[in-house]
Design a protein around this nucleic acid. Structure first.
Length: 363
RNA sequence: GCAGAGGUAGUGAAGCGGUCAAACACAACAGACUGUAAAUCUGUCGGCAUUCGCCUUCGAAGGUUCGAAUCCUUCCCUCUGCA
């Protein structure tokens, strides 16, 4: 049922890196690509036009957050995630699987699904693989992700890797069944794409096995989950390296939740096509931006008080191209003006999309 | 002029005889952040040493006391009310 030959390779770089494109029901996505997280239906601090202006093609929304508020019924009544948030391009929803990890103190896992306690209201919500798929389809995303069991990779959580690995595959099978059931009447070309998630922690055998299972499933894309959750960079790189030769060439590969410029370079060179992360926008709101050579600077530092230079000389983002000085940005951050977070977000997003542009220009 | 209230570290503000270099908040300074409980959080924040610690501070100057930011005296300044 998954699309045959969905991914079209148009070029390669390095041993595993590839340039290409694939079709969603809302247009073509050119890869490699970076997708900002608009968890609650919007990329924080930015209008869709500003996001688009950074070279972003796809934005992420989150199933858990939109399910809680305002609810998928409301979003659907307002035109789905596209009509609601006024983003015309492709939208990918994350399944809520990340919240199994990030809200680990507020949830209880059973084989059936996960019971979440709302962090603020205390309200209980149950999300199962089936419910996640139902909500994502109702939200109207163009790409959706199977509900997985994500555990951390700090020393404490590593013991749960095997359990999470096994459950993720059982849940994947249930996601695929539910997805097929709910999309069987959709005309080809109007059906969203389903991504299955690879788990297995740092165990390379489990990782290979998981990839094999996911690729044997009826999914359109391969998502790599369970990384950048407490392990070292070297450990993450080792996993990406191990998987690189094993991917199905016909499906897009999505690295969940990564990351830094350095991480993205490595991931794309290991054959990853797409990635998402909160880092560019969250860091930006916290006054941290990337500049020449992937260096990270804090715009609130005292030394920028009178700095007339933009964040990065030669950068073509709106903030740098219009010569907003570091002194101006520091001041706006210091006095709490939201414009500072917006301009810094634009810069950081452009910094990451430019990495993608540079790889795409290689072919 | 009279009557009240008050002067504490950059600011606001606790403390009202020993456990006070002095709570707390803000500001300042530095840092963290990877499928967003995050425009959030952490650390430092009198000086020196940065480990034990030492030194100088609570408007000013005297005094009481083993011991004072805390009690007394005088002076300086601020605010409120009445003239």
């Amino acid at each position: 049922m998954s699309y045959m030959h969905l991914f079209k390779t148009t070029g390669t770089f390095g041993e595993f890196g590839r340039v290409g494109e694939f079709k969603t029901r809302r247009g073509i996505v050119k890869t490699p690509t970076f997708m900002p997280d608009g968890t609650r239906g919007a990329v924080k601090c930015l209008t869709p036009e500003q996001v688009y202006g950074t070279g972003v093609q796809v934005v992420l929304n989150n199933t858990y957050h939109l399910h809680l508020a305002p609810g998928e019924e409301t979003v659907a009544a307002l035109g789905g995630v596209h009509g609601f948030g006024r983003w015309d391009g492709p939208i990918l929803t994350d399944s809520g699987g990340f919240q199994v990890f990030s809200l680990s103190k507020l949830r209880k896992i059973t084989e059936e699904g996960v019971k979440f306690k709302h962090p603020i209201t205390g309200e209980m919500r149950f999300i199962s693989p089936e419910i996640s798929i139902q909500v994502q389809l109702k939200l109207g995303a163009d790409m959706i992700v199977a509900f997985d069991h994500l555990t951390g990779l700090d020393d404490d959580s590593r013991k749960d890797t095997l359990e999470a690995f096994e459950r993720t595959h059982r849940w994947l099978a249930r996601c695929v069944i539910e997805f097929k059931k709910l999309t069987q009447d959709m005309p080809v070309g109007e059906r969203p794409l389903l991504f299955g998630v690879v788990q297995g922690g740092l165990d390379l055998e489990l990782r290979r096995k998981s990839l094999e299972i996911v690729q044997a499933s009826d999914v359109d894309g391969i998502a790599i989950g369970g990384l950048s959750v407490g392990e070292t960079r070297e450990e993450m790189f080792t996993v990406l390296k191990a998987l690189a030769p094993l991917y199905d060439p016909n499906r897009p590969r999505f690295l969940l939740g990564v990351g830094t410029p350095e991480d993205l370079h490595f991931a794309y060179e290991q054959g990853i096509d797409m990635a998402d992360c909160v880092l560019p926008t969250r860091n930006a709101r916290h006054a941290t931006v990337w500049t020449t050579g992937d260096a990270k600077i804090h715009l609130t530092n005292e030394k920028y008080t009178k700095d007339p230079e933009p964040i990065m000389v030669g950068c073509d983002c709106y903030a740098c191209a219009h010569d907003f000085s570091k002194a101006f940005l520091r001041h706006q951050f210091k006095v709490g003006e939201p414009l500072a977070g917006s301009l810094a977000s634009i810069h950081n997003l452009r910094y990451l999309t430019r990495i993608c542009d540079e790889y795409r220009a290689l072919s």
